[in-house]
């Protein structure tokens, strides 16, 4: 199917681009680790306090790291004219946009999973919460990319859209933050987390179905 071929071609190209610009792509990851490191320095290295704050700290940092990486989602495409060509493609724009978002998640969301054990170690998160932390990251980081894409599409045409992007996107991230850090918090206390994970899954599915359309409309507005 040509549509699926186009979808895969977008993912392949963006991954290739990320690989060629790998120095740049690692920055949000370093940022993630760095922000987490700042917390013990700011509030003191009390193991109990850090352990209690760990889910929140990790998730706020993940949110900020994603926010930082979002700018690269459409920026270079907008500047070099690739975005125009994508809009002119005969294929459904929403699907192409979804391809961009998937590639963005593979590059910026997935690596967060790899450093999560390190952070858990830093903050003394109980081992029993590790699995839940991973699950929330798997479910919720794509959600962050999907919601964020709408904000980026709205601001990509602006010269200094970065601050505005955070103002638009962070309020929309609130439910993700609440359920994801809430689940890790409960897991650390040995409580069941099925409900939170189900809600995150439901939100992910809804965002997969709903987010590409406003993103496409906003992109068309931005190149106008």
């Amino acid at each position: 199917m040509p549509l699926i071929r186009a979808f895969l071609a977008i993912i392949r190209r963006d991954l290739l681009l990320a690989f060629r610009r790998r120095a740049e792509m690692a920055n949000p990851l370093f940022f993630f680790v760095l922000v987490v490191t700042l917390f013990p320095l700011a509030i003191g290295a009390q193991p109990n306090l850090l352990q209690a704050m760990a889910p929140g700290v990790i998730w706020v940092s993940a949110l900020l790291a994603t926010l930082l990486s979002l700018d690269s989602l459409f920026r270079s495409d907008f500047e070099d004219g690739s975005l125009e060509q994508m809009l002119l493609s005969p294929h459904a724009l929403s699907v192409l946009v979804l391809g961009k978002i998937v590639a963005h998640w593979l590059v910026s969301g997935l690596p967060l999973l790899l450093v999560a054990p390190l952070l858990a170690l830093f903050l003394g998160l109980p081992e029993q919460a590790m699995g839940t932390l991973w699950l929330t990251l798997i479910l919720a980081t794509p959600l962050l990319s999907l919601i964020g894409a709408i904000g980026v599409a709205l601001t990509v045409g602006l010269r200094r859209g970065g601050m505005l992007l955070s103002l638009l996107v962070l309020p929309l991230y609130v439910p993700v933050l609440i359920f994801a850090s809430g689940a890790v918090d409960r897991a650390a206390g040995g409580l069941p987390v099925g409900a939170q994970l189900n809600i995150l899954l439901a939100m992910l599915l809804a965002a997969l179905a709903l987010a590409p359309l406003p993103t496409s409309i906003a992109l068309k507005m931005s190149v106008n």
Binding site: L154, P214, I217, M221, S222
Partner: peptide, 12 residues
């Protein structure tokens, strides 16, 4: 364009 952008944002 601004009005379109804001319409999308309000719906989201």
């Amino acid at each position: 364009s601004a009005a379109r952008a804001v319409s999308i944002l309000a719906l989201v």
